[in-house]
Design a protein around this nucleic acid. Structure first.
Length: 219
DNA sequence: TAGGCCATCTGGTCCT
DNA sequence: AGGACCAGATGGCCTA
């Protein structure tokens, strides 16, 4: 399995084999941003690209290009002539106008989705360098998922550490061999509903705990 | 050149 | 009826 490791080196930040080779192996500048033109109204809307050819043929429904697929058989929303029922009765100009507005809406929706993905990329730990290829969509989602799992586990381990340290202050006996530092028998002394302030935690650990490096409160 | 990734168009379905 | 969401199809760009 090809691993995708973030800058932290956490093993959680891995992707499945299909996607694992993407982000951190990308040393080359890809220029992927240039693919996202966001040109507002696409030229495809107004030019007879191959796609629009199919779009226009769907209006005309000559049947010549529909070898393997007959829309009339697919759905009752087509009328007996194979035309989309939602546009039946409208003038071709109106049909085209409606289609263009639907296309524009869909384009906007996808742009919003991509913006959200960009926001996600900006908060997950990977090399955000211009010289590093941007994470693909699927890699972004998988990495984000793994990052969340990693954070959850880190939080859980921290809680166990807190409980262990707290226990060690009150108990002078040695730790049983069966009890690992993060064992289940450790009890987290603070409830989630009544989290202690940092000074409380710090006093529980003693000033040598070092945990206060991550907070602004002076123990 | 094949494969990966992407943007866009399109029609279907569901919801308001 | 119109909008949101979704998935399939298609073609372009880039990299190995």
């Amino acid at each position: 399995m090809t691993e995708l490791k973030a800058v932290t080196g956490d093993t959680y930040l891995t992707l499945s084999p299909s996607y694992g080779q993407s982000p951190f192996a990308y040393a080359a500048v890809r220029g992927a941003e240039s693919q996202r033109t966001y040109s507002g109204t696409s030229a495809r809307d107004f030019h007879a690209s191959p796609l629009n050819k199919s779009a226009e043929s769907s209006d005309e429904q000559t049947g010549d290009e529909e070898d393997s697929f007959d829309p009339r058989k697919r759905s009752p929303t087509y009328d007996h002539e194979g035309k989309l029922k939602s546009t039946v009765g409208k003038k071709p100009k109106e049909q085209r106008s409606l289609r263009l507005s639907i296309n524009a809406r869909e384009r906007r929706r996808m742009h919003d989705l991509n913006d959200a993905l960009d926001g996600l990329r900006s908060v997950i730990p990977y090399a955000h360098s211009p010289s590093v290829r941007k994470l693909s969509k699927i890699a972004t989602l998988l990495l984000a998922k793994n990052y969340i799992l990693m954070q959850a586990q880190a939080l859980e381990e921290m809680r166990r550490l807190v409980a262990y340290l707290n226990q060690g202050q009150t108990l002078t006996t040695s730790i049983p061999a069966t009890l690992t530092p993060f064992g289940q028998s450790a009890v987290y002394p603070f409830t989630a509903t009544a989290l202690p302030t940092c000074p409380e935690k710090c006093s529980a650990f003693g000033t040598a705990s070092g945990l206060c490096k991550h907070c602004n409160d002076k123990p």
